[in-house]
Design a protein around this nucleic acid. Structure first.
Lengths: 346, 346
DNA sequence: CAGCAGAATGAACGCGTGTACAAACATGCC
DNA sequence: GGCATGTTTGTACACGCGTTCATTCTGCTG
């Protein structure tokens, strides 16, 4: 075995590897840079010595000269929100496979996206930033980032003109909600539902607003009245209360669209355990997202599916494309949605 | 407003700040280092200019010279597991407040903690590492880390001698499970329960093994028979099936301890919706963790609580103590547990 | 006013790496 | 063999910052 020449429990450096492999330090650098020219046997020898010394190029030093940290900033209000947590999970795996790492940041739970956090994140100099925060404008985001081009998840309306906005540069993941919602409404129509309610997310959420708008559009297209609105906040508790209020005070509904699956769970529990109604017998319930819990027996929820892995792949594609071409115009990826039929409509 | 002297959309550097503030670059460095000596008005002026230029010291450069990246590696099998996600959430907030950031890594879902991942993480040179992975030995962890001292969550048995192990250095968060389990068993005893089952986590889990051992100990202390064992994996589905098997084939039980809250949900749903039993009327159910979902109406679970925020505070304390004194002996923090009584026992 | 301790300052160096540049070398063609 | 072209190799520099060290400045005592 090679002489243990680690200094004080610290990492091995390229210099040490070079010394042991009888090459120059630059050769070591090149050995770890695949497209650098280096004779094959030399590279092999270097890599072997590197493995023996447990050497890896220091990412800090590398970042200093290359300007790439290989860190992807992820901003979330709640890690434990179901959808977010599952997306972070899949995203982390995907990024890991591409040589990046997820750098996690939390905003306040009241969605007050303070500039302080952005400045803080900026200090870590991430290569890219994904914000799972709905009320922050891209403008705000770009103002606090130097190299990173933020990615923004958008929900364009069917038929609406593409935003000609040519302000700050950001990339976009467009999610088309019309298909899934239309399938859901068609299904409810088939079962004779007439009064449709929308249990919203919190007020500032663009996702919730887009879902509401699209639902309204689809209902109109299919000859329904506009949806009855019940105010929620994406959470279980609020959905529970809002549903009770909707049915005790405001006349109820035949079908309830909840802004996400968790709200749907709250609505379901309120309907069944508090209001004594049968689902889907008396009321149909439809959620959004299709999180893993939606097929648990207690809920077995019919829901508009956002394909998680497809979505993560699209995000990673955006990141890679942007890093390959930092000067590119605004990049766009588009995803569709579809209805997953389970036991809460029927 | 000051002349926009940013070069190519890049960040401002200490040199630019120095030039604009009419001071030397070293002064700028000192201005951002609180304990460095610098005349107050000068520091103030520098900080003002820095704010105007949106300047923050580059962390990569800082890490290169100081050896501190301010990154805390967090290794998880599933981000979306309830308990883990809630812990990551709280931990990220706490670390953020201390000037660190969470660097997330995922192992395979089959818990095969490959060395490849550790080597990968090592490349990012985190200041500390918390592994929410149960089957990886501290030895393995330390072998892949240079400066970082890993933190290991342990579940020592009551009365068992402290491990005299003096192998690789790692810090410990000890969780005492006896109190909570004893309270639960006492409660079940009061309701006349006789046959107690333990619905385990997956086979390799130390947490599950410790819970089972402690339960066995408490049962013996209180004159019960040993627990009937039903094999699970911490997941909902498996718990659901294991409960059905337990009651259809193996004679059932009066009380079921599930290895975590999610398993308890699965058991509850199986008991109520598949087996037609009443909880808590026919069977009592107790979980572990007290995750946020445990007080949802559908479950309203009685559970052994691990106080999340207390736990996170202990972890952060460990990290800070270790960074303040890298040479210290193995550090230890200890937490207790207690029973939270809700609707599944009564 | 001399003397002195302590604070404030700036020059120089080092952290570990990528890369431009020039030199050396190999290869292919006539 | 002569030359052109392409591949390897090593030197020197740059990245942005913290820190040591010698120097200058400040305030205070005698």
């Amino acid at each position: 075995m090679p002489e243990e020449q680690e200094t004080r429990g610290g990492r091995a450096t390229a210099e040490m590897v070079a010394a042991l492999a009888q090459v120059s330090r630059v050769a070591v650098s090149r050995a770890f840079n695949p497209h650098a020219s280096l004779k094959a046997d030399k590279r092999e020898r270097i890599l072997r010595v590197a493995r023996e010394l447990n050497y890896t190029p220091d990412r800090a030093a590398r970042a200093l000269v290359s300007g790439r940290t290989h860190l992807i900033g992820v901003i979330v209000p709640d890690v434990y929100s179901y959808w977010e947590s599952q997306e972070i999970d899949a995203l982390t795996t995907a990024l890991q496979n591409e040589g990046f790492a997820t750098l996690l940041f939390k905003t306040r739970t009241d969605y007050s996206m303070d500039e302080q956090l952005l400045a803080y994140m900026r200090g870590f100099n991430p290569d890219s930033v994904i914000a799972f925060v709905e009320n922050v404008k891209p403008v705000t985001l770009t103002r606090f980032l130097d190299r990173a081009v933020p990615i923004y998840v958008d929900y364009p309306m069917a038929g609406a003109p593409a935003e000609p906005e040519h302000g700050p540069l950001y990339d976009r993941l467009n999610i088309l909600q019309h298909s899934g919602i239309d399938q859901a409404v068609a299904l409810l129509q088939g079962y004779g539902a007439r009064r449709i309610a929308y249990l919203s997310g919190h007020g500032k959420s663009r996702a919730s607003a887009a879902r509401e708008a699209t639902l309204r559009q689809v209902l109109e297209e299919r000859g329904f009245q506009p949806p009855i609105l019940a105010p929620g906040d994406f959470g279980y508790e609020t959905a529970y209360q809002a549903t009770i209020d909707l049915f005790r005070v405001r006349g109820g509904a035949d079908g309830v669209f909840a802004a996400n699956d968790v709200s749907a769970f709250g609505a379901l529990d309120a309907l069944r355990h508090e209001l004594g109604l049968r689902v889907p017998g008396d009321v149909k319930v439809v959620g959004f997202d299709d999180i893993a819990q939606s097929h648990w027996k207690s809920y077995n929820l019919t829901t508009v599916k956002f394909d998680l892995h497809e979505r993560v792949r699209a995000l990673v594609r955006l990141i890679l494309r942007r890093l390959n071409d930092p000067q590119a115009e605004s990049l766009v990826e588009t995803l569709d949605t579809r209805l997953v039929v389970r036991g809460t409509v029927g």
